[in-house]
Amino acid sequence: MTTAGMPLRSVVTLTIIGLLAAVILAGMNHVTGERIEHKQQTRALAAIAEMLPADSYDNELLDDRIEVDIDGFDRPARVYRARLSGEPVAMVVDLTTPRGYSGDIRLLVAVDVAGTVMGVQVLEHRETPGLGDRIEPRRTDWLKQFVGRSLADPEPEGWAPDRRGGEFDTLTSATITVAAIVEAVKRALQAVELNESEPFTHKASTDTLSQ
């Protein structure tokens, strides 16, 4: 065996293993990719259906969206527009607040055309089990208090937990979690208000073009 032969053989071996790994991963991605995407969509739609009855809109909700930057939030919010026979009926805002007690909390906020909250869903969070996770609908009704609220109800200074002088119930020992969600819902309403007329009309015109 030559001294040059040893490293060469090692290089070839590693390369073959690397190629094998790449082939396996590509195959796996091919097999599971569609299914994973489908699952994620189903989950998002199931969460939306909790707030918007499926027969209240007839467009492809997940395709009809814009992105809105929110000050201080790392990720832009996605605003989905629900419409019935082309007429706007509601918007669903998918936004992630970085201000949770243990990092990001991802929410869906449904808002009707009058700017009133139709419902709030928590998609992802890592809040403390037993304290912050009481925001989940299966544990408490806490999220329900947002239904029917708008930017005028309460006034801007009332958009805070009652422990901090606002108008929203606080979950004991979870003030930070609660404050993060109250703020995020308010931001969602503001995002909708700012973009209400523009995206709806914009989409309406492309609809006409495609018909």
Partner: peptide, 30 residues
């Protein structure tokens, strides 16, 4: 495997396996 490349090869094998298991979980136990 020659001794000098065994660790990179193990890491490659393990990383591939974990990714396969992760993708399977996402697809079938979402």
């Amino acid at each position: 495997l020659r001794p000098e490349i065994r660790i990179p090869a193990f890491v490659l094998v393990i990383a591939t396996t974990v990714t396969v298991v992760d993708l399977s979980l996402q697809a079938w136990l979402h």
